[in-house]
Design a protein around this nucleic acid. Structure first.
Length: 466
RNA sequence: GGAGCUAUCGCCAAGCGGUAAGGCCGCAGCCUGCAAAGCUGCUAUCCCCGGUUCAAAUCCGGGUAGCUCCUCCA
């Protein structure tokens, strides 16, 4: 398996800390609002990574956290009057539900900041004890970036001048402008507070990931985990700071490899609340089926920016449709073994830093060839079973093509409409038998107006939601 | 102001020094009562200018354009 390491800025062969096992930690969402398409893309990218590693025979342990202590959550508590717990559990549930709709498999470990306070306190205390962090009179604890000679290695940001630092909010209590809060002490009674030996307060943004990794993973004396992932925007300062904390607290590096996914853009611009162009996943799921969104969002390499638009989504859907039309032709059947060359080519493509484009091209090729063979031998059971096995393999590796094909084409059509379609098709069959093509064509037009396209086959007329 | 990424057919998108994958759209044909679906065929020299090399979309230098990060952010 080759992966692109965003710190070394080059593609590297993955050599795990422990042979045959891969540990992954992905930065999950801060649960103060609904997930947007960007969260989906990140989740999808690392889901693909995990599936590929498993297909290659690795034992994968993936952790994805939920940040459930945060300033924005606290703000939501203040504005809504709801409890922090109410808010975070609501958004965790909806996140998991929406990701499930996209076919994202659950992480093996889903740590929360509120459940990791012990580990957080331990790590901060260690940093204080060893002189890498300092407590200021207010009770805040800061990481002393000047004590970490490697600070800046992750984002490759070393010589930042004073002028740039001025953009960062100055706190007089900090020793160096780049220092960041490990712990924020309570300032007033209403603050969310957790008691620790250094002060009552709450963790800073970066510390939870480092602490959770130490709590759940045991790497070797060089690295805590194999791969650390997240969105490209997390590279700095989040991952830089995580790396610094972990390095100073443990004496070794946090992760052997770093992977970052690109952004989802709308109309060529980053999707964000301030621009007013964010697209919530729940809204997208109301219009498009999760599987189609998955196919579409995964169809561009994870490191590239992704420009979301309906036209491209439709093209992606048409591509997925072809797989399901093929599946229609081989069902019902008993999946045998996927074609060896096809299977290995598919894995090989994905093992090259998740080259989905090549994988999809291979699938399209398989579809065309299968249709061709089926045209020649429509009743070849062995052929059909192999094709079915190919499709099942695609589903396990890439997470699409697993539905029952007739259902796939009929998503969102209710029973009443289905009955109407059936009776119209029945009438059309009669008309065709009587060579009343005027009537049969009229029915076809009527169905088309309903958003239903039909296709005549030797075994009868099939219909699809257009 | 500093750092980085990207630029390939109308659109999306691979390519990782050896002579341009795939999909959507379009055109022609086969099939069909006609369609649809499926199949077959056709459609680019890679933003611009230099350089390195036997050989560059791929490497180097200089432009131009777009995006991102440096502040919460997937």
């Amino acid at each position: 398996m080759f992966i692109y390491d965003s710190v070394q800025k080059t593609k590297l062969q993955l050599v795990p800390i422990k042979a045959g096992e891969v540990s992954i930690y992905v930065c999950g969402p801060t649960v103060y609002d609904d997930a947007h398409l960007g969260h989906a893309r990140s989740a999808l990218a690392f889901d693909l990574l995990s599936r590929t590693l498993k297909a290659l025979g690795y034992k994968v342990t993936m952790a994805k956290n939920f940040t459930d202590i945060d300033d924005k959550i606290i703000k939501k508590v203040e504005t809504t009057g709801k409890s922090m717990q109410e808010i975070t559990s609501f958004y965790i549930d909806s996140y998991l539900k929406e990701m499930a709709a996209l076919g994202v498999r659950r992480a093996d470990i889903e740590p929360k900041a509120t459940q990791s306070l012990d580990a957080i306190e331990t790590m901060i205390q260690t940093l204080i004890d060893n002189g890498f962090a300092y407590r200021v009179p207010s009770g805040d604890v800061y990481f002393d970036t000047s004590k970490d000679s490697h600070y800046g290695n992750i984002s490759r940001r070393v010589g930042e001048d004073e002028e740039n630092q001025s953009r960062v909010a100055h706190t007089d209590e900090k020793k160096n402008p780049k220092d960041f809060a490990l712990w924020k002490a309570c300032k007033k009674d209403e603050d969310i507070c957790f008691k620790t030996s250094f002060s009552s307060g709450r963790p800073g943004w970066h510390i939870e990931c480092s602490a959770m990794i130490e709590k759940h993973f045991h790497g070797n004396n060089e690295y805590s985990i194999d791969i650390h992932g997240g969105g490209a925007d997390l590279l700095f300062p989040h991952h830089e700071n995580e790396a610094a904390q972990s390095r100073c607290a443990t004496g070794h590096e946090l992760a052997k490899y770093w992977m970052h996914n690109g952004f989802v853009q709308i109309d060529g611009e980053k999707m964000s609340k301030s621009l007013g162009n964010s697209f919530f996943l729940k809204d997208a799921l109301q219009v498009y089926d999760g599987e189609i969104l998955r196919y579409y969002l995964n169809s561009v390499h994870y490191r590239n920016d992704f420009n979301f638009n309906e036209e491209d989504l439709l093209a992606a859907k048409k591509r997925l449709d072809k797989l399901y039309r093929l599946k229609k032709r081989v069902i019902p059947g008993q999946a045998s073994v996927p074609h060896p060359a096809f299977k290995s080519a598919l894995i090989e493509a994905m093992a090259d830093d998740l080259n989905v484009s090549v994988a999809l091209a291979l699938i399209d090729q398989m579809i065309t060839q299968s249709n061709e063979k089926l045209d020649l031998n429509p009743k070849d059971k062995k052929l059909k079973n192999e094709i079915l096995a190919n499709i099942e393999f695609i589903d396990s590796l890439l997470g699409f093509g697993g539905k029952e094909p007739f259902e796939y084409f009929q998503i969102g059509i209710d029973e009443t409409v289905k009955n109407k379609i059936e009776s119209l098709l029945h009438e059309r069959a009669e008309a065709k038998k009587n060579k009343d093509f005027t009537r049969s064509d009229a029915i076809r037009e009527e169905l088309l107006a309903m958003g239903i396209s039909i296709m005549d086959t030797p075994s009868g007329t099939l219909w699809e939601k257009a």
